[in-house]
């Protein structure tokens, strides 16, 4: 985890996590409002999705290592070792595999 102090008077901590996508690039993502899905897309990696709201299951992804937190209750079926990137954010460095 990398933290740094911003220049503005109100000090903000910028938290960065590393996202490792199996068979593809790794990238760094800042802890912000964006979902994991958005971060993956912003790094030019093709990822399957439909609803972007946690109810269709199209974005189902294997979480090999790390932790995420949900911002919307995931309704689609996922296995114990799977996540829905459209409605979660990483809370640690993570290693994932897209289907």
């Amino acid at each position: 985890m990398i933290s740094r102090r911003s220049n503005s008077k109100v000090s903000e901590k910028l938290v960065i996590y590393r996202v490792r996508v199996e068979g593809s690039d790794s990238f760094q993502c800042a802890k912000d409002d964006k979902t994991l899905l958005k971060h993956i897309e912003d790094h030019g990696i093709e990822v399957h999705y439909h609803c972007r709201e946690g109810y269709c299951g199209a974005c189902r992804t294997k979480l090999i290592q790390g932790e995420v937190e949900y911002i919307t209750d995931p309704l689609a079926f996922i296995d114990d070792d799977e996540i829905l990137p459209c409605c979660c954010k990483p809370t640690s460095d993570i290693h994932i595999k897209l289907y």
């Binding site: 093709e46 399957h48 999705y49 439909h50 609803c51 972007r52 709201e53 269709c56 299951g57 199209a58 189902r60 079926f77 289907y99």
Partner: peptide, 28 residues
């Protein structure tokens, strides 16, 4: 994708979405 979700594996070779614009219409 649908078959994998119920433990039936992915029987077809295709890996990337041939109609990517479909997603714009399928997203909430």
């Amino acid at each position: 994708h649908r078959m994998a979700a119920i433990g039936m594996g992915q029987p077809f070779d295709i890996k990337s979405n041939p109609l990517p614009w479909m997603n714009n219409y399928l997203s909430s």
